[in-house]
Simulated scan of single mutants.
Amino acid sequence: MPKEKLSIVKIGGNIIEDDTALNAFLQLFSNLKGKKILVHGGGKRATHIASKLGIESKMLNGRRITDAETLEVITMVYGGLVNKNVVAKLQAQEVNAIGLTGADANSILSDKRPIKEVDFGFVGDVKKVNYKAVDKLISADFTPVFCAITHDGNGQLLNTNADTITSQLAVGMSQVYETSIYYCFELNGVLKDINDKNSVIKHIDTKLYRELLQQGVIADGMLPKLENCFDALNNGVKTINMGNTAMLTQENDNFTTITL
């Protein structure tokens, strides 16, 4: 018997920061057919509120160093302010959303990132997704909304990369569902020419991926994103889509689909 489909959608901080963009996205998300999960970050809002509280945000290669003070801000902003706003807005769209961290229902367990050259502080690397607990919520007709926080099982919350949470959730849930990921970001998709917003590569498979790597088309911030994608595809995820929020509509086909 074929598995039921599950869409896992990730939105970044730029959409969260812009009320108009967020409302438009949540309308598209609510119209998305079938079972679904939303994952969100909120880094820009966290940086803004931290500075209001006189806490300096420290970044390294685009990743946040999370000391104890910063973790408090992140928990307030991701798990509280952003998550509950999104949940309330989805309820207004008649989507019965439930806001979660990885600690809720023991749904996402992480290890604290080991100290190598850099101590990232209270940052988690996902170890296990409790897909049965998440499926109980989905089966009860709730739409889970995960923020970028997990836990270590010993009472410690951990700041965790939202892209990674998305891919690991999709891998975990693929035990039960045919899972597809939608990474919503500013660009229309993976671009052949970074200076031409319309040069979207519509489909990337393993063979083309290797060619694009050799040609240097995939570089910088796209490297870890695509690496993450193929790791998820090799571990049970069916398809991954990358592009702007319009890819959630039936009419738009100007985005990148990634398959094995």
Rank of each mutant, 00 (worst) to 15 (best):
K3L: 12
I8W: 04
V9K: 06
V9S: 06
V9H: 02
K10C: 08
K10T: 08
I11Q: 00
I11L: 00
N14Q: 08
D18V: 02
T20F: 06
A21T: 04
L26H: 02
L26R: 03
Q27A: 08
Q27K: 13
L28D: 13
N31M: 13
L32S: 12
K33A: 08
K33P: 08
K36G: 05
V39P: 09
G41L: 01
R45V: 14
H48L: 15
A50C: 14
A50Y: 13
L53E: 10
I55G: 00
E56Q: 15
K58P: 02
M59S: 11
M59G: 12
N61I: 09
G62D: 12
R63H: 12
R64K: 07
A68M: 10
A68N: 10
A68Y: 07
L71R: 04
L71I: 09
I74G: 05
V77E: 08
V87H: 04
A88S: 14
K89Q: 07
L90E: 10
Q91S: 09
A92P: 03
Q93Y: 11
V95R: 00
V95K: 00
I98G: 01
G99D: 01
S107A: 15
S107K: 11
D111S: 10
D111E: 11
K112Y: 01
R113M: 14
P114H: 05
P114S: 12
G121A: 12
V123P: 06
K128Q: 13
Y131F: 15
A133G: 09
K136M: 10
I138V: 15
I138P: 12
A140S: 15
D141S: 14
F142K: 01
V145C: 04
F146T: 14
T150V: 07
D152S: 01
D152Y: 05
N154L: 07
N154D: 11
L158Y: 01
N159F: 09
N161R: 03
N161C: 06
N161D: 07
D163Y: 07
I165Q: 00
S167Q: 11
S167H: 08
Q168H: 14
L169P: 00
G172V: 04
G172A: 01
M173R: 06
M173T: 10
M173H: 06
S174G: 12
Y177K: 06
Y177D: 05
E178D: 14
S180R: 13
S180M: 10
C184A: 08
F185L: 13
F185I: 03
L187N: 15
G189T: 08
G189Y: 04
L191E: 04
K192S: 01
K192M: 09
D193Q: 11
D193E: 13
D196C: 02
N198T: 13
K202D: 06
H203V: 08
D205N: 15
T206G: 03
R210V: 06
L212A: 03
L212T: 00
Q214G: 01
Q215S: 03
G216Q: 04
G216E: 02
G216K: 02
I218V: 13
D220R: 15
D220H: 15
G221Y: 07
L223W: 04
L223Q: 09
L226Q: 04
L226I: 13
N228H: 10
F230H: 14
D231M: 09
D231W: 14
L233M: 06
L233P: 04
G236M: 07
K238D: 14
T239Y: 01
T239V: 08
T245D: 12
L248F: 11
L248H: 06
L248N: 09
T249Q: 15
Q250S: 15
E251P: 04
N254L: 03
F255C: 05
T257Y: 02
